[in-house]
């Protein structure tokens, strides 16, 4: 699974980093930085929770 954030939609709510801190790290302004767009083993469920939790619906996953 790959994950991507649409930065034109992201509003820095930061919920993604709460749901999947290993995947989403927040920069000093609260916007997510994704170190590896290929979701590491075991992180899938957290990423899917982040997708559901994002109020801006800015996170997308692809197979």
């Amino acid at each position: 699974m790959r994950v991507d954030v649409d930065m034109t939609k992201c509003q820095a709510y930061g919920l993604c980093a709460e749901e999947a801190p290993e995947v989403f790290e927040l920069d000093e302004w609260g916007y997510p930085v994704i170190a590896d767009h290929d979701v590491p083993e075991g992180q899938g469920p957290g990423v899917l929770r982040a997708v559901a939790a994002c109020p801006a619906q800015a996170i997308k996953t692809t197979d």
Binding site: M7, C10, Q11, G30, Y31
Partner: peptide, 11 residues
């Protein structure tokens, strides 16, 4: 800037 992406309009 387009005032869309946070890293741009903050950075």
């Amino acid at each position: 800037n387009a005032e869309q992406c946070g890293p741009c309009f903050k950075g």
